[in-house]
Design a protein around this nucleic acid. Structure first.
Lengths: 256, 256
DNA sequence: GTCTAAATGGTTATTTATGATTGTTATAAT
DNA sequence: ATTATAACAATCATAAATAACCATTTAGAC
């Protein structure tokens, strides 16, 4: 296989999966790691992808005003896998709520091609990304903008959410446990997420396995308020059982 | 095998496989490497394929680079001058409304260092720009996002604006005339700008001189609703007088 | 048969692509 | 926070592909 053919393959894989490992290229293309890295380096230079430690992620936001700084860590992969898995619950004609946070943001990659999708979001990056898709209507939740999270919050935002109704809500969190429920680091998030849960029929909590049975500072809602918890495959069978007993179905996304 | 026959085979193979090696041609057609290369060279020249080191790939598989043309033309200069001039009316501790549009967006550059400034905006680019400044609080007007303008609009947006009050509103337009007042190209803009005017003490209309005494499709508000019109130095003294009589002060920004 | 022009093949210096090694740095596990 | 592991950049080395040059063959014209 030639260089160009490899490059095409890399970009195609990246488009479908959101990320690629150096080792993926090694095995798929039968080249050494250094060659794989050189390919990624070149493509990154051209702006087709963003290099990470051990691979690369899709350059989803060349023209995105609110792009997240691309973090170079392994957990990115988990988040993408979780997002990809979650995307299967989003269908044409749906009206969904999308909260802020990197995991939720990754959902954008996988729902760009939905038809007649209505997305209500508090996240500026999500809005900025999804308005590129002509068949998606984006509704931005107004309110004060929280610079760190690039999302709106505050009483006006919470009030604003009550204007809407959605089939499904996709939210992220800093921690979740059976004992304390959903907990977050920032008190500003609390009311907004509560409002989202209130106006949605089904609530999907997206969080990687490292956050399960971890508590953050502020209690937001009991575990019973969520319907599905989507996480990565590093979660133990034991925890899945426990959560099932607590009324939460854990859905496991395979991380490659 | 004839030359033409080889060429046909090469293109066919390329169409099926996406790529071809020089060695493939050598074995398939029983010719030397140099002949194979000459064939590829010719076909590449004609645009049927793209040459690679060691072979060739399909023409379409080479993706194009995204080209950002960030030209600063004359009208951009005017807009910058107008924005710079307008920025002197924005002070520390102010609460202001900023609409969408390129001219208004240029204001961001000149107010980044204000202290305790509250900015209420319908524009995603404005929000994304100003949240970088720690001393500026940004309030985003919620509602449906209008992809072309990267701004929110619709009944929810208009209703949302009524939650706020601001000292000054900075708005743009597609046309303004004494006869028809402020007019815009898009009907979606109408109600939002109206709402903005309603909640602001003073209204600043920013528009370059080419739009003065020009009418666009939708009437938005009579000329009397605006307090100041900031434009560039290509406006005639005669028009300034006329507008003064109509109760609008025209402020002229020098372009360079 | 001899000539001409196009096509093809061989040789060599050069360029390009790839691989191996080593010390450094980033990430994950503890 | 500390340690172990994996990924990294930098360097050099190697192999393959290339361009440029000249030589040879082939097909058709006279």
């Amino acid at each position: 296989m030639r260089k160009q053919e490899r490059e095409r393959l890399i970009l195609q894989f990246l488009d479908e999966n959101g990320y690629i490992d150096v080792s993926d290229i090694e095995s798929k293309c039968s080249v050494s790691a250094i060659t794989a890295r050189r390919d990624l380096e070149k493509l990154a230079k051209l702006g087709y992808l963003v290099r990470t430690h051990g691979g690369a992620v899709k350059e989803e936001s060349v023209s995105n005003l609110f792009s997240f700084s691309k973090r170079i860590d392994h957990s990115t992969k988990k988040k993408i896998a979780i997002a990809k898995y979650a995307s299967q619950f989003i269908h044409d004609n749906d009206a969904i709520l999308m909260d802020s946070g990197t995991t939720i943001f990754r959902l954008c990659d996988f729902i760009q091609k939905r038809n007649d999708l209505k997305v209500i979001t508090s996240s500026l990056p999500v809005a900025s990304e999804l308005i590129k898709s002509p068949a998606i209507k984006v509704f931005l939740i107004g309110g004060e903008v929280f610079p760190d999270r690039r999302a709106t919050y505050g009483p006006i935002a919470s009030e604003h959410i009550s204007h809407y109704h959605a089939k499904k809500a996709f939210i992220g969190t800093d921690g979740v446990s059976i004992q304390s429920g959903i907990t977050v680091q920032d008190v500003n998030e609390v009311t907004r997420i509560k409002s989202m849960i209130n106006v949605a029929d089904k609530v999907y909590l997206l969080c990687d396995s490292s956050k399960i049975e971890q508590n953050s500072l502020f209690k937001m809602a009991p575990i019973s308020t969520i319907d599905y918890l989507i996480t990565d495959d590093a979660v133990s069978e034991e925890i899945v059982e426990k959560y099932k007993e607590a009324g939460v179905e854990i859905l496991v996304a395979e991380v490659e």
